[in-house]
Amino acid sequence: MTETAPVGEEAAVAALERATAEWAAGGDEPRPAQIASVRVVVLVEGASDRAAVHAAAGVLGRDPAAEGTAVVPMGGAMSIRRFAGVFAKGGGPTGPRGAPELRGLCDVAERRFYERAGLADSAIAVCDPDLEGELIEALGLPATEEVLARAGDLRLFRTFQNQPAQRSRPEAAQLHRFFGTTAGRKEQYGRLLTAALPPARLPRPLLTVLGALRPRA
């Protein structure tokens, strides 16, 4: 039988991310060899966090997959113990051909779940209060509205602001709520808001997670 040639970092990351999504949907667990083929796994709560991590990497000129880093959405912080347990099955020391290094990105209210799953303090990047709040603060309100305008959503946001339940709320709170009102919008703006930032203004939690993305030695 002919041996399969080693796959590149990008292919290994893609295979693990695909296998993890299938497992999360009820399929078989990723194989230990698939887990051991990547260097770092960044566990995030949802798709919007994943979009922001990739957008921040783009702002910094980084490519997570090329560096052997998988960014895995879990469908909620309370799944962290389950996911961390699976990725520990790479076996051996952390790094290539062993269990990957685990990093986590979470909201401040969810940090306890990551700690209980065994992630080290230095491996947990905490958004205060959450990722949307960090991005709105980093951009500022005028620049955030510019992103909405470019996406064609500013008029819709103005209508949203005039709803009785929103009129008395601060604009930052209105924006935060607006991003969560339609399926897919949080993911869209996780990417767009992050991409609108210069490197020096990226929120610290995204920089902390991206500190794990290091090239092959």
Rank of each mutant, 00 (worst) to 15 (best):
E67N: 15
A138V: 08
M78E: 12
F83A: 15
G68L: 10
L102W: 03
R103M: 07
T144E: 08
E101F: 10
R62P: 00
L135M: 02
V53I: 15
A55R: 11
G118Q: 09
V53G: 02
A117Q: 10
A109W: 00
A88Y: 00
V72C: 12
V59G: 09
P73D: 12
G118I: 09
L135S: 11
P129D: 11
P142C: 07
V59K: 02
P64R: 09
A88R: 15
Y114H: 07
P93F: 05
P100M: 03
C127N: 14
L60N: 04
M74H: 02
V72N: 06
I136Q: 01
V86Q: 10
A66M: 04
G68A: 11
G95V: 05
G98D: 10
T94G: 00
R82H: 10
A57E: 09
R62D: 12
V126T: 12
V59C: 07
A55W: 06
A65Q: 11
S79I: 00
V71A: 12
A66R: 14
E115I: 13
G133M: 08
A77H: 08
V59E: 03
D107L: 08
A65C: 10
E67A: 15
R62T: 02
P64L: 05
G91K: 01
G58C: 03
D128R: 13
P73A: 12
G104D: 05
R111C: 04
G76S: 09
A65L: 11
R112I: 11
S122Y: 00
A88D: 11
P93S: 03
A52P: 02
L139K: 06
V72F: 04
V126L: 06
F87N: 02
D107V: 08
L131P: 08
R82P: 01
S122N: 00
G68T: 10
R82N: 05
V126Y: 00
A57V: 06
A70V: 12
R111N: 07
A120K: 13
P93W: 00
R81V: 15
V71F: 07
A120N: 03
E115K: 12
A70F: 11
P142F: 07
P93H: 06
G75W: 09
A120Y: 01
A56V: 10
R111W: 01
E110M: 04
G68S: 12
A84K: 08
A143K: 13
A117H: 11
R111K: 14
E132I: 13
T144I: 04
A88S: 14
A77G: 13
F113K: 02
G76L: 13
A52K: 02
D63S: 14
L131W: 07
G85I: 09
G95R: 04
R82S: 14
T94Q: 11
P142M: 08
G140A: 04
F83G: 02
I124N: 04
G118W: 08
G104T: 06
E132F: 10
A99L: 02
A143C: 05
G85A: 14
A66F: 03
D128S: 14
R97C: 08
T144H: 05
P129S: 12
P100T: 11
R116K: 13
A66P: 08
L60R: 09
E110G: 07
G118L: 13
E101R: 12
A66K: 07
A123L: 02
G68P: 03
A109Y: 00
A84Q: 04
M74W: 09
M78R: 15
E67L: 10
P142S: 06
L135D: 08
R103C: 05
R111P: 01
I136W: 01
E115T: 13
V71Q: 05
